[in-house]
Amino acid sequence: MSVLVYTENWDGKFKKISFELASYAVALAEQMKVPAVALSLGKVDETELKKLGNYGIESIMSDTNENYIGLDNQAIAKAVAIAAEKAGANVILIAHSNLGKAIAPRLSIKLKAGLVTAIHGLPLSLQPFTVLKNVFTNKAVGKVLVHAEKKVLTLAANSFGSQENIVTTIINHFDAGLSNTDFATKIEQTNKVTGKVLLSDADIVVSGGRGMKGPENWAPLEELAELLGAGTACSRPVSDEGWRPHSEHVGQTGKMIAPNLYFAFGISGAIQHLGGVSSSKVIVAVNKDPEAPIFEAADYGIVGDVFKVIPQFIEAVKEIKS
């Protein structure tokens, strides 16, 4: 028996959530009194692989087949299933990321495992296996029982945190034995977001709504985001109007995020928007309408003009940093 954790990489580097996931796997394995084993698929060099050892991972299975770069859902699910069998895993941990969401359901069928997605926190009980997940788009929390012997779990980003715990790591080469025909997704073009903080990775998110009045007014918001090393986001009307790309839309039908700090500028806070951001640890709202529902979700607020407030925020952040 073991806990297998699938650690995602991009461009040969582990994604931030992989370290959080590794920390979670180590804690869960300790609770279950079984070893934690990490799985890495794709070209990741030894120096990078060993970084998992900073988060308590003592054993890594690494399959460096280059074809994994195509992020083919079926092929990756198959490889993780083969690794899970090999590691004798009864719990398989996956990030609740775009890729994680794509492969976890397929994997659960292959392994006849119970699937629970976007869980947060360690299991409340191992017998019966009980975990918590948010439901109704963060409006409630559900206690889920897994009846199957095997479990596939996806972990909500930023819900556990990565915990340093330096150990010696052994890298075992692993070959899932996939052939070229297993990879059906043909990549034509990749557009990488460069020079910007990814929303899914961001500890701080700066977000604008209709109160920003138009796409031409985003410069101060972006300046603040850059100073804070923050990701930028927006409300639904803003992306629907085409002021900002859909990939920035946070809310019920957009992205759900859980940063440490969320700034909402000129966002009224419709229930659908709050669903997507309410897991943020601290919410700051700036809105000219004192009755705006965003103030009910916010920890800190200013009733006022975003265009007067943002420059003061920029100034204060500069003072703090200097």
């Binding site: 659960s108 119970g114 699937l115 029982l145 800190y300």
Partner: peptide, 22 residues
Amino acid sequence: VLTSFESFSLPPAKAACKKVPE
């Protein structure tokens, strides 16, 4: 089924928003 919901709860109410003048 492989999983089931045992129970649900609503998130705890948030403390009041601390307001700062503009």
